[in-house]
Design a binder for these strands. Sequence first.
RNA 1: GGGCGCGUAGCUCAGCGGUAGAGCACUACGUUGACAUCGUAGUGGCCACAGGUUCGAUCCCUGUCGCGCCCA
Length: 1033
Amino acid sequence: MPMEKTFNAAEAETRLYEAWESAGAFKAGANASREDTFCIMIPPPNVTGSLHMGHAFNNTLQDILVRWHRMRGFDTLWQPGQDHAGIATQMVVERELAKDKSNQTRREMGREAFLAKVWEWKGKSGDTIINQLKRLGASCDWSRNAFTMSGAPGAPAGEEGNFHDAVIKVFVDLYNKGYIYRGKRLVNWDPHFETAISDLEVEQVEVQGHMWHFKYPLADGQTYEYVEKDEDGNVTFRETRDYISIATTRPETMLGDGAVAVHPSDERYAPIVGKLCEIPVGPKEHRRLIPIITDEYPDPSFGSGAVKITGAHDFNDYGVAKRGNIPCYRLMDTKAQMRADGAAYAEAAAIAMSVAKGERQLSEAEVDAINLVPDDLRGLDRYEARRRVIDQITAEGLAVTILQKSIDKETGAEHLERVPFVEQNKMMQPHGDRSKVVIEPMLTDQWFVDTAKIVEPALEAVRKGMAAHEAGTFDEKAGYTRILPERDAKTYFHWLENIEPWCISRQLWWGHQIPVWYGPTKDFVSSMAWRDGVSDKGTWPLQTFCAATAEEACKIAHAYYWNEEIAAGDTRAIGDILVAEGAEPSIAGFAGELPEIQIARDPDVLDTWFSSGLWPIGTLGWPEDTEELKKYFPTDVLVTGFDIIFFWVARMMMMQLAVVDQVPFHTVYVHALVRDEKGKKMSKSLGNVLDPLDLIAEYGADAVRFTLTAMAAMGRDLKLSKDRIAGYRNFTTKLWNATRFAEMNGALRRDVGTADLPQASHTVNRWIIGETARARLAVDEALAAYRFNDAANTLYAFVWGKVCDWYVEFAKPLMDGEQAAETRATMAWVLDQCYVLMHPFMPFITEELWGQTGERAKMLVHADWPSYGAELIDTDADREMNWVIGLIEEIRSARMQMHVPAGLKLPIVMTAMDDKGRAAWANNEPMITRLARLDGMTESAAPKGAITVAVEGGSFAIPLEGVIDIAEEKARLSKTLEKLEKDLNGLRGRLSNPKFVESAPEEIVDETREKLGLGEDEAAKLKAALSRLAEVN
RNA sequence: GGGCGCGUAGCUCAGCGGUAGAGCACUACGUUGACAUCGUAGUGGCCACAGGUUCGAUCCCUGUCGCGCCCA
């Protein structure tokens, strides 16, 4: 059955992918014929995700590397999997639940039931992205598909696996090594998800901000001389003030102020440093006083130069508060509403007052328990509270005001009015990258990785890797890592050298629950305070027990309580202690009975990136010592986008080195972003998103893949347009039709299966074999250097520019001559090589052509990658064919410019020719005649009224008496000559410069001389032709 | 403010010490051994600007001007 006219991608792609899968073509080690391994870990897409252009790009590049290695016989594994994506997934499932009002909310159904819902959702929708990757042609070993939550408690059947074990083990190990700690720190709090998030999950967005100016009256009506001076020390302003002016963008946080700070060098405020001032908000009778302190942080030139310090709600203030031992009063709850808990304001304010006066010291927990929100503001949203605070202060006359002209709408009369001074400023405001709500800095207890302690090996490994890469001594097995392109290594260094502690606890349910249990400290147990009801459970001092399981935790707790004499001196001494796991810590059963202490598990889960940071070892079965781990770890290449260098790459480096003391991969290839054709980031809100699945449906997966690859110049964003994809779809059609030509001419070797390299005698065949070898060398070299675009462009130029444009055309007249058999064999071989070399880039159409053109022993996906090279390049054939091509092009060009009708065949006259040229002509006459539309060659002197075609070794004339316009031919020749002379002058100039001849490398000088010689020959011919034309007239 | 890049044909971009390339777009013409998702030919560039290093600079160095991105 003859081939269809075009490739039906939509029909073939699914069929071919299924064929590969059912043959187990992608299984780890499939087609392996050598010991070397090659392993790539897929950057796990979110389980909620669907394929976007970035995935398509990222996975195309990985697939090329994987298919290339597999064909070369490496023991290859492309490890796929998905990330449980804590916040994103919890958000999606909650949103799903909310669609039906009869559903319980997350909190109503409780943790266990909600998690069951998430697993259920994962079971239903988790395969979406996998199926999409298959449409792209990704040759992952799906039988090993991994999931970062596999094996977690509550995981349903089919979600076994031990990723959870790995995560828990690492947490416990790092905890025991002292790399993980818990502390009350100011963290980025997402009020929508009610969880802490890491710095990286915060987006700074520029918004129009407002800055209010308020007066903080000095205590006891004190006054001071406020003096402003210019640069030369001349007084420019002076007044007596009984207040200090404060500028703030967040008036609602004034309620939690612990101090006012000024710069130590700021002379304006020197007289009042150390004094107390009053926060101008809250009930008049309970106004709080706070000290005026100095700190390096305030910028004297910004605002009034004085800054209110609210340690619990601002990162800069927090630093000042820590340095100055200023209490940090938390004002908001987890929803960023003003706190409504604790004692009434009067009581809380009284305690705070005594702290400010230095009469009292509070523990951290005691400070946190104090609610300084006035009773009338409690429970309000932070923005509502802000409005009211501003109103109250303004009403009291403590806002800094300015005079503003206003016009009465009724009367049109102008009058001046005092209005609060509010500056309009653009400011950067932090937002949650998922929730898009404004992040609230919040003082909470969180878990942190002490990254400073594990960062050094991660830096060192890349420093060494980059040094080796630059020196050209890079060794994949040397235990270091390089990052390509180099620029991204700089980014990596910059971030790691300035790394901050990593907040890893999240107040979510979907994730790995932190393996830590809390119980009261033994001091506290023996203190009896717990019995006296003095403090509620929230402020009990706690002891931490970190263990992989509850049983283990109980054991550790037991040892803790038991080994020490916890009730020394107490008559109710303890016989034994029963430690049990409970919902919250408790103590019971004293007084002679066996005491019982309940320890309670930390309800928080780990940051998703903590688990994905273990992806390389976790997917290979660690902590078990599996065969795969031994074989494939460390893995080879990580292909990823620059946007997750910090989130993921850096953390994988740190964690793998901390846990197994090895780098996870030797090379990180960082690719850029896919943008729309105008260079805009694709985003749903802009509506400029190109869906890779739509494009695959329209143009075929091969065209989409090839487009992305051809545009993948290292480190540069790529602007994707449909025109470009259509162009590469046309390329697939071109290859298809070249095959059809071979089929129609009996040039397929269906009989022998795979075509062997033929013994070719004809120049044309020897030439194309050499070109094929060149292409193979160039593709391998490009891929080895991760220059995907070079590889793609090489193939495009070879297949279209050499095979289709020239070889197929040359072959036509050879199909029934002496060399017919040889030419058919060569064509079969060349096309096979095209399929093989193109397969990593365009797997579908090449596999289809491979299947349709022969009885093959193996599918193309497992075909052997060729190893031939320079030995197939025949330089004589090369020279000859380039001469032929040059001649044909010259004649075509001349004809076209002389407006010779395309269909008209012309005779040609050889006016002069050397031996080589004669041989070249003789060997290729049928091709030249056909392609240049000639009709017979004679030898003689140049006739009058002919066009001249100069080639290396001689020249031709095409008599066009009466056909050509002499003037036009003159113009054509003159133009060519002019251009040539310009080049020649450059060459002459260089050669006449003695310094050039002295200093330039010999080969460059020789090359220049040769060029000049050839050029001068050609110029002479052109001049001769011109003078002949002159004779005609 | 700190860091990292980028300014090359109308557009999108390769190239990065030996005198400039591709694709698309554009113009003209279409010749039966596959292909109009095609073929042939052609137009088009002081390689942002100014200095420096060099026999030689689009390429290396310095500065200027534009434009991105990341982090504050």
